[in-house]
């Protein structure tokens, strides 16, 4: 059986990344924006895994582990900020928080 071509894996990663980017741009609910950022990070991790699989090296998986760590930190801080935003503005609309010291 043939190996999965590297191009297809990278194309899938690019498609998922673009979908996440579209989510960040289109949605205005801050929870959905965080979810879309997760999608984008996951797509970049997929690109690393595809490359690591292509050259049969463990480095791709290492980069994925680092991305995973960063995603965990980002989510915990982001959700704490979401709760803080909700208590201050009573909404999750990111456009309501477009002013500093608002």
């Amino acid at each position: 059986m043939a190996q999965v071509p590297m191009d297809y894996g990278l194309a899938l990663a690019a498609a998922l990344f673009v979908l996440g980017l579209a989510g960040v741009i289109v949605r205005r609910n801050v929870i959905f924006i965080l979810l879309s950022i997760e999608i984008m990070m996951n797509a970049s991790g997929l690109a690393f895994i595809v490359a690591g699989s292509r050259w049969r090296q463990p480095d791709g998986q290492l980069m994925f582990i680092f991305i995973l760590t960063m995603a965990a930190v980002e989510v915990s801080l982001g959700l704490a900020l979401v709760l803080r935003l909700y208590h201050r503005l009573k909404t999750l609309d990111i456009d309501r928080a477009d002013r500093m010291r608002g």
Binding site: V4, G9, L34, N42, G52, S53
Partner: peptide, 26 residues
Amino acid sequence: IFYILGAPLAAALEAIIYAGAIMVLF
């Protein structure tokens, strides 16, 4: 897909940490 690409550790981490821990936080 990670498992198919020959990265079983990344596949397990994806299922446990991403689909488990982070999504539960959401």
